[in-house]
Amino acid sequence: MAPVTAPDISGNADSQPRRSALVTGASRGIGYEIARRLAGQGCELTISARRRDGLLEAVDKLRSEFGVNVHPVVANLANDADVAEVVNAHEGRYGALDLLVLNAGVGAAGTVAELSVKHYDLVLNVNLRSQFLLVQKALPMLRKAAATRPSSGARVVALASITGVAAEAGLSAYGASKAALISLCETLSLEEAANGVSATAISPGFVATDMTAQMDKTVDVDSMLRASDVAELVVALSHLSAKAVVPNIVISRAGPAIWRA
């Protein structure tokens, strides 16, 4: 799907361009909070989401609050053409990419015995295949940014899940997709560290968002992590030097269990 037309309001007269980030699934929840924190750091953004109205509302709020350039792209990451369009839109606007945040994803509850192949395919397609394609297509821009700023390099941050580290019954395909995403980040760092590019998976327990609101009868919303907790870690990772490679960050909810979703 085509990018939404948006004026360039960066107003950056410096000889070296501002850092830029691409954040998927950024119209609400964790993705929006990440985009908001990055905008607060002066980062120029490309943000994507499936729903046009929510995406444009997010863009308006980010521009109004921070005055940075925010480029919206309506995209369904289950579609390969949309995946390519997100990357192409960022390249056309900024040329290089300092930070790729893979936040978009889908969930599907179901045991190994019961989950349909249709739901399995959707989860693996969006949560893993599209993430692989986004990284693959964005690598030339990430390498370019890293060459421009060798001390800081470029980074990929992928929103995985604690279920990718410690399995949870009923989340067979979802947990498998997130475990694979963690492995993808580790492999990317091994292959691209020499080019100044590294990747980190963030694996949180339940985060209080619209997606988890339906779980209020089984999990106390007040006990859940906050989107701001995840966003703070993304910002911190963006400040690290290229020498620092962080494979995976697990964030558990407070409680007696070591791994608590």
Rank of each mutant, 00 (worst) to 15 (best):
residue 118 K to I: 09
residue 128 L to N: 06
residue 117 V to W: 13
residue 105 G to Q: 01
residue 120 Y to W: 13
residue 123 V to A: 07
residue 113 A to L: 14
residue 113 A to R: 14
residue 117 V to S: 12
residue 124 L to W: 09
residue 100 L to W: 04
residue 108 A to R: 12
residue 102 L to W: 03
residue 114 E to Y: 10
residue 118 K to E: 15
residue 112 V to Y: 15
residue 99 L to M: 02
residue 126 V to T: 09
residue 102 L to E: 09
residue 125 N to F: 09
residue 102 L to A: 02
residue 105 G to V: 07
residue 115 L to W: 10
residue 121 D to P: 02
residue 111 T to W: 09
residue 110 G to D: 10
residue 123 V to W: 00
residue 122 L to Q: 08
residue 100 L to K: 04
residue 109 A to N: 13
residue 116 S to Q: 14
residue 132 F to N: 00
residue 129 R to S: 10
residue 107 G to F: 04
residue 104 A to S: 13
residue 126 V to D: 02
residue 98 D to M: 02
residue 122 L to C: 02
residue 107 G to N: 09
residue 117 V to P: 00
residue 103 N to P: 08
residue 105 G to W: 05
residue 107 G to Q: 07
residue 107 G to I: 09
residue 129 R to I: 11
residue 129 R to L: 11
residue 101 V to C: 04
residue 104 A to Q: 08
residue 109 A to Q: 13
residue 108 A to F: 05
residue 131 Q to S: 12
residue 98 D to L: 05
residue 102 L to P: 05
residue 100 L to Q: 08
residue 114 E to F: 11
residue 111 T to H: 13
residue 114 E to M: 12
residue 133 L to F: 08
residue 105 G to P: 05
residue 124 L to F: 13
residue 131 Q to C: 03
residue 104 A to K: 06
residue 110 G to H: 08
residue 124 L to S: 10
residue 111 T to R: 14
residue 117 V to F: 13
residue 127 N to R: 04
residue 121 D to L: 12
residue 114 E to S: 14
residue 109 A to F: 10
residue 110 G to F: 08
residue 118 K to W: 03
residue 124 L to P: 04
residue 133 L to I: 10
residue 133 L to Q: 02
residue 130 S to T: 08
residue 108 A to P: 02
residue 99 L to V: 06
residue 100 L to C: 05
residue 119 H to W: 07
residue 127 N to I: 01
residue 128 L to G: 00
residue 117 V to H: 11
residue 104 A to D: 05
residue 111 T to L: 15
residue 109 A to T: 11
residue 99 L to C: 06
residue 110 G to R: 06
